[in-house]
Design a protein around this nucleic acid. Sequence first.
DNA 1: TTGTAGGCGTTATCAA
DNA 2: TTGATAACGCCTACAA
Lengths: 335, 335
Amino acid sequence: MGDGKPATIYDVAARAGVSKSLVSLVLQRSPRVSDQRRAAVLTAIQELDYRPSTAAVSLAGTRSRTIGVVLDDFRNQWFVDLLTGLREALQDQGHRLVVADRFLNTGLDASPVEGFLSMRVEGIVIAGEPTTDLAIPASMPVVIAGGRVSIPRADTVANDDRAGGGMAAAHLLDLGHTRLGFLGAGSAASQERRAGFEGAAAAAPAAAGPVTVAVAVLPGEPTEEAGSRALGALLDEHPDVTAVFAANDVMALGALSELAERGLRVPEDVSVIGYDDTPVAATRYVGLTSIDDRSVEIGRGAGERLLARIADPGLAATESLVEPRLVARRTTAPR
Amino acid sequence: MGDGKPATIYDVAARAGVSKSLVSLVLQRSPRVSDQRRAAVLTAIQELDYRPSTAAVSLAGTRSRTIGVVLDDFRNQWFVDLLTGLREALQDQGHRLVVADRFLNTGLDASPVEGFLSMRVEGIVIAGEPTTDLAIPASMPVVIAGGRVSIPRADTVANDDRAGGGMAAAHLLDLGHTRLGFLGAGSAASQERRAGFEGAAAAAPAAAGPVTVAVAVLPGEPTEEAGSRALGALLDEHPDVTAVFAANDVMALGALSELAERGLRVPEDVSVIGYDDTPVAATRYVGLTSIDDRSVEIGRGAGERLLARIADPGLAATESLVEPRLVARRTTAPR
DNA sequence: TTGTAGGCGTTATCAA
DNA sequence: TTGATAACGCCTACAA
């Protein structure tokens, strides 16, 4: 089957002995086609290994049936789950997903959005915090998934960081810890998580005695390095802390290594809890208790919002929060 | 700037007071255009925020300038580096990269390749082992990046697993270890890495005494669980082993946790070395010595091969190997 | 150097 | 239920 040029709709029509229009109708699953003709067209398609040209389809059709997903960075694994959710909501509705990170196809286009606009996507999903230089036309349906910063006419679907922080505190309180610590950095998420953590700690029933929360927040990115330094600073000032909550898993990892270097055992001496439930946390070797931000749900929600917005561009922007979930592993234990 | 429909080449032509052809020439950076007209067209493009429709371009043009990348799984982080290399080779030559994993757009198309064929990509890069159900037409230029199994007319660019295994052995021998262990699973890569490891161990200068390699190979996937079990089996039979080489980082992680459970310290009691140099290995907390398979190089090589094959489809298939590199961290130490 | 006209592979609109 | 025929937005000879 050495195939030269791919077959076109004309080839199929000729082979099936019908007009191109009829083939098009069959392609679109129109019910207004006789079973006989339909069968003929279908077999011709099979025999020719015909496949409609997406270029021709989106050029001639009224909609491109394509939606673009802007990832901040392929290295942030959470996008994998996000995509799963998006697929469920979008793909099953006949939409094609095209993903790009900040660098993919840079050079051809200034930003991934440029490329999407050229493709005439029907909508755009921005994963994570939107950067201001994205330059998305006002008429383009947009939804931000997993980011808190909202841009003018975009819906936002994000994890409820405050609730997650509360869950972390509740978990540690349940285990009997009363001298807690928080490790944070200079991100909006970190602030929200801290607020939730402190709020829940403060609201704890006074029965078990006073609950204290020592805090170490470093400016800058929430890196492993920052986690190590924050833990060091925290412990230097409050050596009696028995459980720490890090703003994310990466920082928690830094805390773990710093604890090991100080000869403190986890969870015997100090319990540690992270946030994001990254793949590393789930490994047996690390086994980090963490807050699952439910990225699949976020993706599904974002997809549904986008669909709604595409159907009715006039819709008011909404902000919805997805309830996180605590995943207990071996880095937390009863006091 | 409420923009309704995107501007077309007609709009630009009208605005600049020239023909559509002239606009097209400017778009293609043709030198045969007067500076005056060019300037007029360029400003019209700016003012209208015009962007050529990729659909129309690829439909009217002779080439789509698009190449498809099939990822086995977005969770395998190595593709990030692979993409970096591919970008360098392809994107800079004006090619657009479209990525898809096994599931992206499934439902619309049976396989990611289906989608690529519809897009009329000029070539396909398969990352990792190609599955046989890919159904790629013989006329489509294909290169396999990072996989050993080759399909009929495809070039292959992969990591030299055998050399990597040798490096692992050399490193351990350098550190004075003589009772080595290998932890493997049922993959082709595992076999090659083992062969290289054993080969280098056998070729070691007899000066430092005899070198032994105990082996534990489990059937199935090289998972963390498999790593734990393999290490257990190995140590049960050969308690005197002082250094182990795992077929990949994930298995090495399993080995690390099993060692911890057995009360053995790393690297004081046992040195551990993995393969792939995954992000987890590079964290301070894990700090796993590993073999970097140089995915960026593989991507660049694959991109170049693909370019060559697109230019001359008649080219004979080649297989090239990229030399890996050892990255020493804290899980290996002198005996 | 610039403009005219045809065609790329579909969908969409009308007739038949 | 089918079949012409005109778009869709751009490239590419070919002419001017």
